[in-house]
Computed example of a mutant assay.
Amino acid sequence: MKIFSPVRISFAGGGTDLPFFYEKFGGRVLNATLNFGWHIELRKNPFKAIDIIFEGKRISFLEDEKQHQGDAFKIIRGPIKDFLPYKSGFFLTVKKDRPLLGLGSSGSLIVGLCNILSKFKGQRLSPRTIAERAFAIEYEDLGWLTGKQDHYAASFGGINIFHFGPKNVRVEPLKLEKKTKSQLRERLKIFFIGGARSFDLQKKLSEAVSEKKRLASLFKLREQVGLSAELLKKGDLDGLGELLNDSWNEKKKSNPSVSNDKIEKIYYLALKSGALGGKLAGAGQGGHMFFISKKGQEEKLVKRLQDFGVENVNFDFYSRRV
């Protein structure tokens, strides 16, 4: 069997999906899934062995865990252990379309693994159950500081507002007119700026600012979810671009170390080249940036940033559930 698990971009509310915030105050995030991510294939093994090929590298699940200290091995091993026992062994192949840094890729991968392993065992799990199980594996079992939006985005697909509470999550699909969605796809430009994955980065960044300042910024980021949704519903992409600019400034207040000289140069160049606003996707320091362009300035924006050395990412929105 084969499955696909998408990654996402977050328009507003990122950070309010972290447990320390939503368990006390409630969080909200507006995000959208994209048509690239993880491809996972599972085939039954006539023997008891569980063999894994991750990005072309073969790994045996039964090998000593100390031999594999990499984050990728931990991500894959987590769901496999969580769904034990199995009636037979299997071959598991995992690959991605392209670099996914900053787009919720670890959460998406765990969702994909939970999805395919549950199907292999004959279980019918809802998108909500898969999202919660995947989050528990990453946050509790692996001990990584992560929010819930990645797991819910990959499980539900589409453009959604997720309302995170201490005991439940409410999913609010954002229904846009076809014209608005088409214009958003045309004027939204995503760029890969490079960088390396670090699962302890979120923890380091969270320690870079006082709790009082961080909370104040997170409250503002949460408020911007409703504003962003209303702008999208009205088709006001100019307003959305300007709000993204405000959101980026608030994100830097909540975590000053989220940016660096390279990111600031790219952002400044984008604004000078036709972007109304944008932000860095993910925890910070690298990965992907996205911008809303002024109408008619899309090609100029792409060319200027490509000349600077960053990669323009072709995409479409993805709306299927697990």
Rank of each mutant, 00 (worst) to 15 (best):
Q123C: 01
L125E: 13
Y139F: 15
L188Q: 05
K204P: 00
S118M: 08
H163L: 11
N168A: 14
L145W: 02
D141S: 14
R170F: 10
T129F: 04
R187D: 06
K178T: 13
F199P: 00
D200R: 09
I137H: 04
T180S: 03
E177K: 14
H163S: 14
A134T: 09
A196N: 07
T180W: 02
Q183Y: 03
I190N: 05
F135W: 14
K167A: 13
G143M: 09
Q149A: 08
L117C: 08
S198W: 00
L142Y: 09
L205A: 10
P127D: 08
G147S: 13
I161Y: 04
R170K: 15
E132M: 12
S206E: 12
K175S: 13
E138I: 14
Q149P: 11
A153P: 07
N168P: 00
P173N: 04
S198K: 11
F191V: 03
K181R: 14
D150Q: 11
E177V: 00
G143D: 09
K148R: 15
I137P: 04
F120D: 11
V171M: 08
L142I: 14
Y139M: 01
K148G: 04
T146C: 15
R187M: 06
G147Q: 11
G147H: 07
T146E: 07
I193V: 13
F164L: 09
K148A: 07
S206A: 10
G158P: 06
I161K: 13
A153Y: 03
K121S: 13
H151C: 08
F191S: 02
A154C: 12
